[in-house]
């Protein structure tokens, strides 16, 4: 990031990409470390030479839970290890909660353009996954 250049805030870059149906991550132009969430500096070497990349949207469930909350149906929350080498939190649709297991292959289904505003976190679009189809 050159002095005086307009900064693209990393969170906004992430949210803008989601609005276009894409999950983005970063690689470091110096040490090649893969990073998520997007930042202004590489969390490995501190370089500002970070490059945004789109994910192919495929990965594997690293761990999962099913939340039982009053007033709504149980829902799953998962951590997914994406094929590019970063981890995200999401949820898996189009499968019963009991079938959402550690190690299952999943792919990005869609992005809901949620316009919720959280006082601390801001605007929050939401990606969801589904079991990976053949091919």
């Amino acid at each position: 990031m050159a002095d005086g250049a307009a900064m693209l805030p990393p969170l906004k870059a992430y949210q803008d990409a989601l609005d276009n149906g894409e999950i983005i991550y970063q690689t470091c132009g110096d040490c090649e470390r893969v990073a998520f969430y997007p930042r202004l500096v590489c969390p490995e070497c501190g370089s500002t030479n970070v490059v945004y990349k789109p994910s192919a949207g495929k990965g594997e469930v690293y761990t999962r839970t099913v939340v039982h909350a009053r007033g709504r149906d149980p829902y799953n929350v998962v951590l997914i290890d994406m094929d590019e080498g970063f981890r995200i939190m999401s949820t898996v649709e189009d499968a019963p909660n009991d079938d959402v297991r550690i190690g299952m292959r999943v792919e990005l289904k869609t992005v809901y353009p949620v316009e919720e505003v959280d006082a601390k976190a801001g605007r929050l679009p939401k990606h969801v996954f589904r079991p990976q189809g053949d091919g």
Binding site: L11, Y14, Q15, F36, Y37, T65, V67, A69, Y75, V77, I88, M89, S90, T91, V114, E116, D118, K120, A121, G122, L124, P125, K126
Partner: peptide, 16 residues
Amino acid sequence: NPSPYELPYGPRMPIS
């Protein structure tokens, strides 16, 4: 501080 990368998925903090 809820993370914008986690909050939309509704984990119960910190139980989930």
